[in-house]
Design a protein around this nucleic acid. Structure first.
Length: 271
DNA sequence: CTTTGCACCTGTTGGC
DNA sequence: TGCCAACAGGTGCAAA
């Protein structure tokens, strides 16, 4: 998927064209997403006016004059603003027609994405209520990471990918941030020093910010709101670079499966 | 409580 | 060329 930079890029891409628009039509071609879209979704959403497009973790929040549309792109989802031209294609599961004639089109081959219409305080929705801090917010600090990692035996890579610790760090950026921080992904989280946590917080912030500036990373599926790929892939230091020379020291990049996910690191730059 | 592994899906890739 | 296994950016949940 879309990790945080890709979701943020999507948010920025659609905010300008959907904010202030009324949702005139709601078309669902396949309700079988991660959580089936309930009957009644269409009638609840149609007629609502979109007031703002926000992001929490990897969720997009479309605030309306009624409730909030809570959207997740899963592993292969994308959300695009299209005009009347292109007809629906395979895996275009959800489409919102807007007052300005545009359509917000959700495409997701693997159907790991989701749509919820939430009334009331969306931050108390079960999917959001227990999430950790935003990595680019001020409350994500070395002290917090240090405190939360005490007595944790999980590998630091899995630790920073845990959304209850910090949100938005997916498989690509976890490896990249650990490279930048000089920390091996297999180290137990509880073995991090406060200084390690400081470098790691800085590295997570830096890599996510840089990726947002490049429009995200496209490996396969991801396209932004205009249907274009992200350009951060060429700036990756370790991800999917097994056996290739480290960009910093030329040592061959290593990889192994950790917690079911491919992990990459430089054995010389990281300890 | 922590940790681990599975489940949900389709599409692409690489080895034989 | 064809077939099949392995793998792919997420994350909730059950089980131990």
């Amino acid at each position: 998927m879309p990790e945080l930079p890709e979701v943020e890029t999507t948010r920025r891409g659609i905010a300008g064209v959907v904010t202030g628009q009324t949702i005139t039509t709601v078309t669902i071609r396949d309700r079988r997403l991660r959580w089936p879209i309930p009957a009644g979704f269409e009638t609840a959403v149609a007629g609502r006016r979109i007031l703002a497009v926000e992001r929490r973790a990897k969720y997009l929040l479309l605030r309306t004059d009624g409730g909030t549309l809570l959207i997740h792109l899963g592993m292969s989802g994308s959300l695009r603003a299209v005009d009347d031209g292109p007809p629906a294609r395979l895996h275009d599961h959800v489409e919102l027609g807007l007052g300005n004639g545009l359509r917000l089109r959700f495409n997701d081959p693997r159907r790991f994405g989701s749509f919820h219409y939430v009334t009331g305080d969306v931050s108390r929705h079960p999917l959001l209520a227990t999430l950790g801090p935003e990595p680019l917010a001020e409350d994500f600090t070395a002290e917090l990471l240090f405190r939360r990692s005490r007595r944790r035996r999980v590998a630091v890579k899995q630790f920073i990918m845990d959304a209850h610790v910090v949100v938005g760090v997916g498989n690509i950026y976890a490896s990249e941030a650990l490279f930048r921080a000089g920390i091996r992904p297999g180290r137990a989280a509880g073995r991090l020093t406060l200084a390690d946590c400081g470098r790691l917080v800085g590295a997570i912030r830096a890599v996510l910010s840089a990726a947002i500036d490049s429009g995200g990373t496209t490996l396969r599926d991801y396209v932004n709101a205009d249907g274009l790929p992200g350009y951060f892939r060429q700036r990756l230091f370790v991800y999917e670079r097994r056996d290739e020379p480290c960009r910093r020291c030329s040592t061959a990049i290593r990889s192994r499966v950790q917690g079911g996910r491919a992990t990459y690191w430089c054995p010389r730059c990281q300890s």
